[in-house]
């Protein structure tokens, strides 16, 4: 069953810049996909079409068969997004309130909101600081808070846009660990990054984007040797001909 189907997707910004061009692909439920490409290659633009933050000029995105543009609230609920800038996606004044923001927008009743918030905070290990003010958290904790925020909406697809930027080593490991356990729990995971090293050991599938197009789409071990032509660094281990190890070991 394909959870996401993208057909001939193109988007041009009002100033004439081409964001993405003619992307066609489908994603099965439960896949772990890494999207790589240099800055400006269109990763963010592509991801924002999945939940209707941007609408295409031509082509369409279907989520479990239904076009995004037909039911945008459903798309936003199904596809949860963790943005690059952790600070400016925090809405609530406390950790608890921030996670409650999504479910409250879905007009769930108070009990259900509370249940979901507690469940999500437990899942990301922030339940002990539920009353803390979010901007006092560390970088890794802020991203986990963002993850909790979308878990509380029970999104089936989780999209991470450059989740490792400005995170220290423990922060990267926290996020990686989080993404993997969510993948195990059955979520479909998409991670956009220009830094393959940290995550590629876990991916089922690697997409390489360049100039708004998807240039390569295959299992990581098949194409990893060819990525440098597109502004993505080949992981060290792969250069040395060794097997790539997880950052969690």
């Amino acid at each position: 069953m394909n959870i996401i189907e993208v057909t001939n997707l193109s988007h041009r910004f009002p100033d004439g810049t081409i964001g993405i061009e003619d992307i066609t692909l489908s994603i099965r439920e439960g896949e772990f996909i890494v999207i790589a490409g240099r800055n400006g290659s269109g990763k963010t633009t592509f991801l924002r079409h999945l939940n209707g933050l941007l609408l295409p000029d031509t082509g369409a995105v279907r989520l479990a068969g239904v076009p995004v543009s037909r039911d945008i609230p459903r798309a936003r609920q199904m596809v949860g997004m963790v943005f690059q800038d952790a600070d400016s996606q925090i809405v609530g004044e406390t950790v608890f309130d921030d996670v409650a923001f999504g479910p409250e927008n879905l007009c769930l009743n108070e009990c259900e909101v509370k249940r979901r918030v507690i469940k999500s905070l437990k899942a990301v290990g922030l339940i002990d600081i539920a009353d803390q003010r979010p901007h006092l958290l560390s970088g890794g904790e802020k991203r986990r808070l963002a993850v909790a925020g979308i878990l509380a909406m029970e999104s089936r697809v989780l999209v991470f846009d450059e989740p490792f930027s400005d995170l220290d080593y423990p922060g990267v490991r926290q996020i990686l660990h989080q993404a993997l356990s969510l993948h195990k729990a059955g979520h479909t995971i998409l991670i956009a990054t220009h830094d393959l090293e940290k995550v590629i050991a876990h991916a089922d599938r690697l997409l390489i984007m360049s100039d708004g197009k998807v240039i390569m789409d295959n299992a990581p071990e098949v194409i990893i040797k060819d990525v440098e032509a597109f502004g993505v660094r080949e992981p060290c281990a792969s250069r040395l001909g060794m097997e790539i190890e997880s950052w969690l070991n």
Binding site: N51, L53, P73, R76, Q77, G80, M81, F83, D85, D87, S88, Q89, V91, F101, G102, P103, E104, N105, L106, C107, L108, N109, E110, V113, G149, I150, M153
Partner: peptide, 23 residues
């Protein structure tokens, strides 16, 4: 810029004026 990013993030989490309110 930050306000703009925040607005997008709120939109991505289905913000609308019709929402649950604590009694």
């Amino acid at each position: 810029e930050k306000a703009d990013k925040l607005a997008v993030a709120m939109e991505a989490r289905c913000y609308s004026e019709k929402r649950t309110n604590k009694a």
